[in-house]
Design a protein around this nucleic acid. Structure first.
Lengths: 236, 236
DNA sequence: CGGCAGTTTGATGTTACTCAATTTAAGTGG
DNA sequence: CCACTTAAATTGAGTAACATCAAACTGCCG
């Protein structure tokens, strides 16, 4: 499996774990793939839930998902958005149970591979392992930055950060023209990701619109004033 | 290096990466240790700073440290507290630069090992790698839970969570009697870890004291009512 | 005894939440 | 193409949580 090496850059380049392990989309695939199966999940459906025992490692191939923690009283914190090519979490490669749940935002296609197969594939290639280490570092960094934003940022900063974060990830995958990014989220998702209420998200987005920083409606983010957005949402 | 295997349990048992790689404190150490050097750092001193290029991997051997992100305007978010035995971060094993800073809370002793040496030690033992994977999973889980608490919890819940988290980690290391835990933190640290102001931390601690849930003063946490603390601060 | 860092308290201000009503947008079936 | 339905977004009014500012208090150390 030669192209596992391309995974080394995956979280940063946005290529994703999926392509690395499954082969590039356009390429002919001579290898045996019986150990990998695909599933389609409808929008809004739960894909895995916390603490569930899972023999498989999942990669999201198509659509958007959320990785989240749910409290007893229904509140939830979205930990990350899963985009095409994303391994649900590095932890899945080594553990049967994970501490989070995953839900489909849009209709979604996922690929499941048995853990032992993934492990043996990875063991064969030293680059595969360092790739996974890179993914792992990226996960921790992302999670740390999220914590920092939730702990230190006001509503505007949190939302600005979220959009900047998504913008970067989308731009790494798609060719973007015109600072317009497809983001298939409801304001409820923005709220759950930033620790705000949907009402307050709505008000904050209106202020952004009035100040001509960004517009976000019907699934399209348009960045009108990139410098101002970064002034608000960058951590440094 | 046979006892690297003991690291498999490290984040959960609280044994820590340090003992696993450096050997148990009491044991005679026949191996060559020239590749490892110790440093003592005074309380309050910065140990590493964000984005700094580092040839070494650090483990905290004595005292308490904080791992944090600092914003341009001085606000900071504490991402985790480093206790004796803690590897600063798994990311350090694979990357020259890390995204966070580390500061000594108390006087601190740290052990530095060159990255290549650590990597080769780990490569020799498959258990060492899976141990590191376990540490990594624990890091991500901790960071995710922090984000969830900051996003979803009110002041009381955040502080309760923090103390529960620290209590568990301390109890895994020390023998505890009487629900009294040494925690050498100022209210400013609690504030920076929970995204609150020191003033509000003080008020919240007073309410906890009045309701006889916990007392926290002069470096000692006393848990008066464990069930009530868990009702407030557990995520589930 | 004085000085300093940390904590506590009070008064006031701001941010974000809650609740409820209204508007908009997106289907769906006639 | 137009009612009708439903989910999502917006708006307003009132409230709760937390921040800010400033002053007083505590314990500790020289």
């Amino acid at each position: 499996m030669a192209n596992v090496s391309s995974c080394a850059l995956c979280p940063h380049s946005g290529l994703g774990f999926c392509n690395a392990v499954l082969g590039q989309p356009g390429q002919a695939a001579p290898e045996d793939r019986s150990w990998q199966h695909h599933r389609v999940v409808a929008a809004g459906k739960l894909i895995i839930s916390r603490n569930q025992r899972l023999p498989d490692v999942f990669v999201l191939c198509e659509g958007w998902g959320i990785r989240f923690l749910q409290m007893a009283d229904g509140r939830r914190q979205i930990l990350s958005f899963l985009l095409p090519g994303d391994l649900f979490s590095v932890a899945m490669v080594y553990q049967e149970r994970v501490h989070f749940s995953v839900k489909a935002v849009t209709p979604v296609q996922i690929s499941a591979m048995t853990r032992v197969d993934v492990q043996s594939q990875l063991a064969k290639s030293p680059t595969g392992l360092s790739a996974l280490a890179g993914s792992s570092a990226f996960e921790v960094k992302t999670s740390d930055e999220l914590a920092a934003m939730l702990g230190c940022g006001c509503a505007e900063e949190r939302i600005a950060y979220l959009f900047l974060h998504l913008r970067k990830r989308i731009a790494a995958r798609n060719v973007i023209r015109d600072e317009r990014y497809p983001i298939p989220l409801r304001q409820q998702h923005i709220a759950d990701a930033t620790g705000l209420t949907p009402v307050h998200v709505s008000r904050t987005l209106r202020r952004f619109r009035e100040r001509r920083i960004i517009e976000f409606s019907s699934g399209i983010l348009e960045v009108l004033d990139p410098p101002q957005l970064e002034a608000l949402g960058s951590l440094r």
